[in-house]
Design a binder for these strands. Structure first.
Lengths: 363, 363
DNA sequence: CGCCTGAGTTGGAACGTTCCAATTCCGAGG
DNA sequence: CCTCGGAATTGGAACGTTCCAACTCAGGCG
């Protein structure tokens, strides 16, 4: 198509490298197509009111100039960003990636897009990154785990619809949550090991965060219900945490480990290998979370429907964006034990021991 | 501090839920503090020209109203976003998270922040997500792997400073890249296995993407140099790819596997376990990438300095943002073999075989 | 006493969109 | 030939910020 070229604006100016110096605007496109900026705006939004000929000319001009709409300007005037902010506690833990899958799926299905951000387990960067999301005027916030105080969290929830994935937020008004039942989940692990004849079942803890404490409580209650002596050793939600935790646990004579999460369970496995202990013949290991990778690693775990958690969270959030004044809902997802090769019968010499016998450092 | 309250604006309006209906603006803060919006802007930016008393009043007003600056408005008028866009091919692969660590570190050190986005290995979403970054006017783009065509890539590079991490982009002008030498890296793996007495060394490929093909080429050349018959089986950069690839490879009598990446190597391990084969007694396995997790899994791998790659990439990018017209630089990072427990001497019955002997399906 | 200076403050234009109200254009109907 | 109506198009205000130029107001100095 031939455009009359008495319009002042030619092709976009380029620097020697070919990198554009000034980005073309609606105005430039309008000048090149010989119409007003309003019509260009209309045409690019696909309005049916634009005459076919004009539309064609505008699209051609935009293409020739390499026009790229400016989202910041658009969302400023529209007062909408159609964007959901997502904070991930730790990108190194594949569990969070799996939750994110579900979030993205639901967010996109609802016509929003996501802005992803991570504090990498550092509370200070976590704060600044979330602040950044709020300043970018995201319309909702998904927190895939976080380290905020209850006050900080509720302040945020007052500002923008928010949903927390991974733990319940009962006390705090105006925000939703999606989580599994960590107490019941830890009990599943203990029950499973008891069924296999274990009594010296130790728990490698995940530190003193909320989730870790819940799982620990579940372990302790289950042990008490089975009239077994509990042993909790310090660990963390990382491979290293699992490694050192497993070392002290087997040092104390444990034949089975309930590890705080999958990543730590992988670390525990490494510690056992380093000690020359076989899994599950000498020691059984059960993880927590249910990340996909564990299938390949043949690790027994307490599994949560991760992608579904993300999906449910995003759906709750979008509902809350549409109807801001809904009471908080806290969704509980089903937790189940997935038995794999890392858990087996207790070693014969350790089986059938007296239940509440105190722990000693025998091997 | 007592503020005179004849100003028209009171506290920000809230809906029954406590969720704010209209976000306070500079104007609201100005009204409440009894000054002009210009002075509020100045004060919030920490300008020394603002009188202490005014500053205090303004800060108090902002705090009381819960004022939150609007980044979209700010970046619109400033014509700067101070934001780097980062695209990650696949969040499920921890390798990319480790590269991202380096990127974030360098980006923050230089006073920028990041906007993270993932296509989750789907080319279509990848495109829309990158488009989104461009429309948000990021000042630079880091692509931690991607599936764009060369044309698409160079079009983007013409629009915004861009750096690709993970593979070289020699042919394409105006963008930088950071990568390891995949051909040499694969050779390291083969050499290592040959030293251990292996001759039936198979390669589980990573598909037909650029990197996979490079690694495959490195394997093939190294095998030829050792006068060994190569065997390449189809795989993918995923656990499943490694699983099926390993199955066919050992079916063909391989005693050692050079697997296309770490994730696939984990899958290969699972396949061997399922077949009752011991590692490394029956079969040795070498991965590629060097993700941290492999340390716990005791897997030999060809390691790349992942975080450093990210750091170097971000530094190159920021240099290019400052000085747009610099010639492309392609940084090569050092690749080295990290020997762990998954690679060992070739089984005695397979050792010292005739080198170029054709492969058969013996076990 | 008027002028100058500089500290402190302010109005208003600009950024690139969207969208409303107003305008032009053109053919049909009276 | 004039009027009307609908389709197509347009100007301009608005979004919330930044920043420049201009202004006010003391106080010091000649």
């Amino acid at each position: 198509m031939v455009t009359t070229s008495e319009t002042p604006t030619g092709l976009s100016p380029t620097s020697p490298s070919g990198l554009q110096t000034r980005r073309p605007t609606l105005h430039d496109v309008a000048a090149r197509a010989g119409v007003s900026k309003s019509l260009v705006s209309l045409a690019l939004q696909g309005s049916p009111k634009v005459a076919p000929a004009s539309r064609e000319a505008i699209l051609a001009a935009a293409d020739e100039l390499g026009y790229r709409p400016n989202r910041t300007a658009s969302s400023l005037v529209r007062q909408r960003t159609h964007t959901i902010g997502v904070h991930i506690l730790d990108l190194h833990n594949p569990v969070f990636a799996e939750i994110l899958d579900g979030v993205q799926e639901a967010v996109r299905r609802n016509g929003y897009s996501t802005l992803l951000v991570t504090g990498n387990a550092d509370p200070a960067t976590e704060r600044t990154e979330i602040t950044r999301l709020l300043e970018s005027r995201v319309e909702g916030l998904v927190l895939i785990a976080h380290r905020l105080s209850d006050e900080a969290l509720s302040a945020i929830a007052r500002e923008v619809p928010t949903v927390v994935v991974t733990w319940r937020t009962d006390g705090i008004a105006g925000l939703d949550s999606v989580a599994g039942d960590d107490v019941a989940g830890a009990r599943l692990a203990v029950d499973h090991l008891v069924t296999l004849g274990h009594s010296r079942i130790a728990h490698v803890s995940g530190g003193d965060n909320r989730i870790a404490l819940q799982r620990r409580a579940g372990y302790e209650r289950a042990m008490a219900d089975h009239a077994l002596a509990p042993l909790v050793v310090d660990g963390a939600f990382t491979e290293q945490g699992g490694y050192v935790g497993a070392e002290t646990a087997v040092g104390a004579g444990a034949t089975a480990l309930v590890v705080a999460n999958d990543l730590a369970a992988i670390g525990a496995l490494a510690a056992l290998r380093a000690r020359g202990l076989r899994v599950p013949d000498d020691v059984s290991v059960v993880g927590y979370d249910g990340m996909r990778l564990l299938d390949s690693l043949d690790l027994t775990t307490v599994a949560q429907p991760l992608a579904e958690m993300g999906r449910v969270a995003a759906d709750l959030l979008i509902k809350r964006i549409d109807v801001p004044d809904t009471p908080s809902t806290h969704r509980r997802v089903e937790t189940r034990l997935v038995a794999r090769g890392s858990s087996g019968m207790a070693p014969t010499h350790a089986r059938g021991r007296q239940a509440a016998e105190p722990w000693s450092s025998s091997t």
